[in-house]
């Protein structure tokens, strides 16, 4: 796959109250960002089981984003702190085994930060484009480049 043709798939788990609202705002404000972002609305960033993030990568996502409210602003008061712990666990496990842990991104984007939402989506997509496709999805398969 040549680099300019690489169109990443990024799964975004966005909390209902902040990051989804920011995505709504980016929408109402007509701020364009790459179509590679595939949003899934969840109630709270703490709704997202770490296994979901791993599963998204395994299913073929090139990266995942978990979006929550800023610390202290969580609609459920402490959900985002719990989510941060889970993300820390996932990223540490990935990094420890030599996977690319930057393919899991944790971002705090509040409901009024539509422009920040678009900016993060743009920057992250660019970053993942540079990194190239993820080989995580080929785990336990015959595909990918690594297997002779």
């Amino acid at each position: 796959m040549s680099e300019e043709k690489f169109d990443p798939v990024i799964v975004g788990f966005f909390c209902n109250w902040c990051t989804s609202a920011a995505a709504d705002l980016a929408g109402t404000a007509r701020l364009h960002y790459p179509a590679s972002i595939k949003p899934i609305r969840v109630m709270c960033s703490s709704t997202v089981d770490p296994v979901y993030l791993i599963r998204a990568l395994q299913e073929g996502a090139d990266a995942t984003i978990l979006g929550g409210c800023h610390p202290g602003d969580c609609h459920y008061i402490t959900g985002n702190y719990k989510a941060r712990r889970r993300v820390a666990i996932v990223k540490t496990v990935l990094k420890s085994l030599g996977f690319d842990d930057t393919r899991v991104l944790l971002e705090w984007i509040s409901g009024s930060e539509g422009p920040k939402f678009a900016r993060v989506m743009n920057e992250y997509t660019d970053y993942i484009k540079q990194r190239g496709p993820s080989d995580f999805k080929y785990l336990d398969s015959l595909g990918g480049e690594e297997v002779e």
């Binding site: 770490p50 785990l139 398969s141 015959l142």
Partner: peptide, 25 residues
């Protein structure tokens, strides 16, 4: 189709990674 062939049974590595996430700490 997507992964150019898969190894069976599936989810073998997911099990180990998942277990690490749950009990590693």
């Amino acid at each position: 189709d997507d992964k150019d062939g898969i190894r069976l049974p599936t989810d073998k590595s997911l099990f180990h990674i998942g277990r690490l996430i749950h009990m590693g700490t």
